[in-house]
Simulated scan of single mutants.
Amino acid sequence: MQAADAASAAGAGTTAAAPYRLRIVGGLAGISQYVRQEEPFWTKELSRLSAGRFQAEIVPFDRAGVPGAEMLRLLQLGVVPFGTTLMSSFTAQYPEYTAPDLAGLNPDLATLKTTLAAFRPYLEKALREQHGVEALAIYVYPAQVVFCKKPLRTLAELTGRRVRVSSASQADFVGALGGVPVLTSFSQIVPSLTAGNTECAITGTMSGNMLGLPALTTHVHTLPVTWGLAVFGANQAAWAALPPDLRTLLKRELPRLEAAIWAESERETADGLACNRGAPTCNAGTKGSMVVVPVSPQDERSRQEILESTVLPRWVQRCGARCAQVWNQTIGPVRGLQAAPAK
């Protein structure tokens, strides 16, 4: 493992320290979080902030040949010293870590912030003690919403429709509405809709726009089914081996990067919807002519009922009694929702 390149001599008779270089594995390629925030921070800002002493190169994990589900293990082993891992990729092995973004739990970004704040101390401690990973920042992606080919007035009308989902809790949510969840990777959303394998898809408001969904679908519902959280973490040994002033700089600047990414996600959620409907305020996307379906009182009731009766109990079933305990000590009290132990 080489977290950084050693300093080298430059010129005859003089020695000048070469920049200390970090290798970073970032988030999903091609989307705003990476292009407008992560990549510029590591490739430009770090050097500027350190007057050229520290530099970094970054590659998105999905172009680095790193399977998302393996990232936590690769961080633990030090194969990837510094990397971004999608929290949804923990579903199979570590379902307890997916608690803050269960389907239907966070109807807006402000709620997600309070949910995560309640859970974060547990998550950071668990990653450090059980995996040897230092969680340095937690990023958020824009709202994941429902796009459909046919008219949709309420979520209840998903009954019988085949809906692309990307996680177990999204599948639970869609199933409880009477829909048929179809687990599909991001890259297969368009082929699946085109071939008729799915009639609707849950994805980001702007990522859906960039995929060209306004040409394939007619309606987009505004309820955030989930958001999408990602942890930027460091292998503990790699973190400890950094020059102390670099650790200090990152401890100061990474929370700022995190805040910028959260602000961008909020802007992009709104901009994605504006672009999908073809509003004059559309900024970063392509103008479509979709019908944007607002959240009705019935939708809000459905969200709460499905969270309580289906999503949370099924998460506890997959996760075990310890997860009910973790929930009841962290998120439960701030959301007024207790988890019953798995039966």
Rank of each mutant, 00 (worst) to 15 (best):
A6H: 05
S8N: 04
G11E: 00
T14Y: 06
L22A: 05
R23S: 14
V25M: 08
A29C: 09
Y34R: 11
Q37E: 07
K44D: 08
A56T: 10
V59E: 00
A69K: 12
A69P: 00
E70Q: 13
E70P: 03
R73M: 12
L74V: 06
L77N: 10
F82N: 10
S88C: 05
A110H: 01
K113L: 03
F119D: 00
R120T: 13
L123K: 05
Y139E: 02
A143E: 01
R153P: 04
S167R: 09
F173S: 04
Q188E: 09
T198R: 00
E199Y: 07
P214C: 08
L216D: 03
V220P: 06
T222G: 02
P224A: 12
A230S: 15
D245G: 09
A260T: 10
A263F: 04
L273N: 05
L273S: 08
C275D: 00
C275S: 06
N276C: 11
G288V: 04
M290A: 11
V291P: 00
P297T: 02
R303N: 03
E308A: 15
L312G: 10
W315H: 13
R318M: 12
G320I: 10
A321T: 15
A321I: 15
T330L: 06
I331L: 11
L337R: 10
A340R: 15
A342R: 14
A342T: 10
A342M: 05
